[in-house]
Amino acid sequence: MEKPLSIAAIKELLTTISDSTDERLLAIRNDSRKGAASAYKAWENKLKKQQSILDKQAEMLQIERYFWEQGTQYIAGIDEVGRGPLAGPVVAAAVVLPKDFDVLGINDSKQLSSAKREVLFEQIQEAALAIGIGVKDHHIIDNVNIYEATKLAMIEAIQQLPIQPEQLLIDAMHLPVSIPQESFIKGDAKSLSIAAASIIAKVTRDRMMADYDDLYPGYGFAKNAGYGTKVHLEGLERQGACQIHRKTFAPVKNVLK
């Protein structure tokens, strides 16, 4: 009778199998040892997780695929980060993905950890056909209001693209541009291009706010990105407003009074 594989060997073998119909799985399924059953269960869960990621990717590419099938080649997803903070700029990104884009795990940037966003940021940078960034600082936000500043940042992001998009997919905004556009509520959860743009914008702005934390310590910008956390509000009360605070936003305005 053939000696069964060791548990370590079974775990090693399972790393080479990605198909649930693989005949080598039969012996592992029939193995009565707890270690074998545990290894198989872990492999099965990993396979389900991977399939779930692939299904999510396919679901989030439905909008892009519709336009690709109509003959539209360059589709730009657009999103912004930084409408709510009390300090710093609003940052927008425009991202054009290729049809064979295969970076997995992309989702609304708010649903991802900082470490995961950093990894995806680099992968998107490498795989995207084009990326544009738009930044509007606290001066512009105070002058025209945050809503209009967001539009300006998005328009700048489109203008910074090295290729001209034929279709825009925008997260909850309509822009005064001549390029055909579609707006989606919670677009970063529905379109892969918009989700990719949300990651690019988020990481870009977080890095900027970390740099500002060095220039203006005491507000916790590196951790709160300018949002009104307890640490930030305490710093605002203790030190007053700094150069990058939005002076038209209520907590800052109150301190200035």
Rank of each mutant, 00 (worst) to 15 (best):
R65F: 04
F101C: 07
T21K: 13
S20P: 07
Q70I: 13
D100R: 03
L26Q: 12
A196E: 01
R205M: 10
Y147R: 03
V96L: 04
A241R: 03
Q111V: 02
S198R: 02
V203R: 01
N254A: 15
L168I: 02
V252F: 01
I28F: 00
A189V: 00
I28M: 02
N145F: 15
S32V: 11
G84L: 10
L13R: 11
I179P: 04
L175F: 03
L97H: 10
G84M: 09
G84P: 01
L169W: 01
V103P: 03
G71R: 05
A58Q: 15
V231S: 10
Y216P: 03
K116E: 06
V177N: 11
D102Y: 12
G77K: 05
R33T: 03
G218N: 10
S183A: 15
D137I: 05
A92W: 09
S38G: 02
A42G: 00
L192D: 00
Y66K: 12
A172N: 15
V177I: 14
A149M: 07
R205E: 06
M173Y: 13
D171H: 02
R83K: 14
P217W: 11
I28D: 00
Q57H: 15
N254F: 11
I155M: 15
V144T: 09
I200R: 04
I106K: 01
Q57N: 14
P180M: 08
M208N: 01
I146S: 11
E12P: 01
A196S: 15
R65V: 10
M154L: 11
Q111D: 09
W68M: 06
V255I: 15
N143R: 14
M60G: 10
F184D: 01
I155C: 08
R65E: 13
L168V: 03
I141M: 07
A149N: 10
I163G: 09
T248G: 12
L129P: 00
D100P: 06
G71E: 05
N107P: 04
G235P: 10
P4T: 05
I10W: 00
F67N: 08
G82I: 08
D142V: 05
K48M: 09
Q239A: 08
K56M: 15
P251M: 12
N45H: 05
Q50M: 07
Q160A: 13
M173T: 10
L86F: 11
D55L: 14
G105C: 09
K202P: 15
G71C: 08
L192G: 03
I244A: 01
V103R: 01
I244N: 03
G71P: 09
V135A: 02
Y216M: 05
W43M: 04
Y74F: 15
S198C: 06
D55R: 13
Y66M: 10
R205I: 12
R207I: 00
A189C: 14
G220T: 13
V231N: 07
E148L: 14
V255N: 00
A87V: 06
Y219E: 00
V103E: 09
D22G: 05
E234C: 02
K151Y: 11
I194Q: 04
D206P: 05
P176Y: 09
I141G: 03
S114K: 12
S113H: 12
K186S: 13
Q239K: 08
P251C: 13
A149V: 12
E156S: 15
S32K: 14
L169F: 11
K56A: 14
L61K: 13
K230Y: 03
D19A: 11
M208G: 06
M154S: 10
S198E: 06
A76M: 03
A92M: 09
